[in-house]
Design a protein around this nucleic acid. Structure first.
Lengths: 331, 331
DNA sequence: TTGTATGCGTTATCAC
DNA sequence: GTGATAACGCATACAA
């Protein structure tokens, strides 16, 4: 005497198949063996009723999981303007997807407080990302932070900012550069580490100024700096996009790269629209994403996870060269 | 006598506050008025117990909603290589976030079949996106398709492919171009409409070949075409990235744009690394995203939603100019 | 304005 | 291998 248009439930299937609810459940979950004959009867009943499998909402409640991992990125447009973000997401999505988990985009101001998240990955990477830290911790949500500040109870995934920068500095020193300047990102722990790495070689490092990792912003800052007719013969940028901006801006002013100015980047992303391969510190972006995702998975399973620092590697391209001879320049 | 380390539930709060379960529920949901004094008592009890608000999983089951909208994009890396994708996501995220919904990234091969999605938006836009169409429809999930094929039961959000292309063609005709070629995207309905628009003016349109909307792919295809010493004096691309590739490739071969070859794009996205503003068909990307998101919201509420076709607008930049005089060229 | 009683659709535990 | 039963934590219809 039950209604007919209601979407069928597992109970309906069980009844139609003439088996118990548990048996029907087992048939779909596969958590325990079910006799082949029974199995087929249940499946037939499901097909007859148009049952599309267990309701995820109900299973989620029962199992205490949503199957969704949030990724906090700050402002979406800012995050994805950075070409390093995409491969990172690609890698995270791959690992999470393989585990049957979904990846939920958390932009800052969105009201995601009410969503059931199994874990949250903070994709900081030098950007300004809001952390609803207290709330998430209080709710017991496992937290993974990529290149971010050290908060207790979270798992860290980071890269060798300092060593990579130091190696780059040694490369420049080897080319004869005596005065080096750097364009920074907004202040952050990674940024400070990178500067420290450069100062291992260039104690008198000139810090040009902070700007977003955005082509036109970099062009502006670098342009203003070039106008001061600087001493430095090499400019270390904190991202390849910044470096590309520097190259374009230098050329716009008639300077050749690396003839008049050497420029280096960070990240090792592709800049196909630049006719020059940048000298840069290559970071393992995909590995970073996979590591973060795996850490989230492990923490969801309740396992303890150690922090990770991934290695970087200097890649010498055509944007750095021997320091120019100084004949008659101001300073 | 109850355990002490279990995370508190609404029932615990109610008991501690000395009110009924429903009153406690109402206090948090605000769905019905609660006396101020009662309210405070409940909140105090919640604070005392460390209760962090209603369990989203339970609420989801009860309300039959997950609060999550999936966005199918095909291959992540492919999707976000298109600069039009980001503003689209930004807009969708804004609208969905304001409604308290989350946006879940669905890459192709991910096993998202088990996730409870309130709706799914297919961000097709000329790309190849896998549609688990039957399953989603069978599960009764509202579907919204952006620039995609016409499947029954889904809501469409599209743009004026044909009119925009026709207008661009008229612009080129006005500049004196007699022979026009076009680089296409992979075959799709929007692609066919755009060609039809061009053919309104250029019946003998030369179709160069298909390629992904990716700078280097475009450079390759356009380069090969230029090697054939073509008749056409204008090349219409199907994205601004393609057009940028065409410009770079033409210049690489010593051709000037638009002196020797006029190049037009589609989308109207920023290409700050190009020292030229492209002539392009500007589509309202953000509006497209907002419209799709609002459609999803409405369909979740059970409302009927009409399909939408958004207007585009020709923007004339510096990449198109008068057709060159033909003196002595092969063809 | 508050309390009582159901049910959302599963999965897990336990006995058979 | 299968079946009864109890949660999972909440929101709502209804009664008071």
């Amino acid at each position: 005497m039950s209604g007919s248009t209601r979407t069928p439930t597992l109970a309906d299937v069980a009844e139609t198949a003439g088996v118990s609810l548990s048996t029907a459940s087992l048939t779909f979950s596969g958590n325990k063996p079910v006799a082949e004959a029974t199995r087929e009867r249940v499946l037939a009943a499901a097909a007859a009723l148009g049952y599309r499998g267990p309701n995820p909402l109900a299973r989620n409640l029962r199992q205490g999981r949503s199957g969704v991992v949030g990724v906090a990125v700050g402002q979406l447009s800012e995050a994805f303007r950075d070409p390093a973000t995409l491969p990172l997401f690609d890698a995270m999505s791959e690992v999470l997807g393989a585990a049957g988990l979904g990846l939920l985009l958390m932009a800052d101001d969105d009201g995601h407080a009410r969503l059931p998240l199994d874990a949250v990955i903070f994709d900081i990477c030098g950007r300004d990302v809001w952390m609803p830290y207290d709330d998430l911790v209080a709710r017991g949500v496992p937290l993974v932070v990529i290149e971010g500040p050290a908060w207790p109870g979270t798992t860290y995934v980071d890269i060798e900012h300092r060593r990579g920068s130091a190696e780059l500095a040694r490369h420049l020193r080897g080319l004869g550069h005596d005065r080096v300047a750097t364009v920074t990102l907004e202040p952050s722990q990674p940024q400070r580490e990178r500067e420290a790495g450069l100062r291992e070689v260039y104690a008198d490092l000139e810090v040009v100024g902070a700007c977003a990792s955005d082509l036109t912003a970099a062009q502006e800052v670098v342009g203003a700096w070039l106008d001061t007719d600087p001493d430095a013969t090499a400019l270390v940028c904190q991202s390849d996009v910044q470096a590309a901006g520097a190259v374009l801006e230098a050329r716009r002013r008639g300077l050749s790269v690396p003839g008049d100015l050497s420029v280096a980047g960070f990240d090792g992303v592709a800049t196909p629209w630049l006719d020059l391969e940048l000298t840069t510190v290559v970071q393992p972006i995909a590995e970073k994403g996979r590591t973060a995702a795996r850490a989230a998975l492990a923490r969801i399973e309740g396992e303890a996870v150690a922090d990770v620092v991934l290695p970087v590697e200097l890649r010498v391209g055509g944007s750095t060269g021997p320091a120019p001879r100084r004949d008659a320049q101001g300073g």
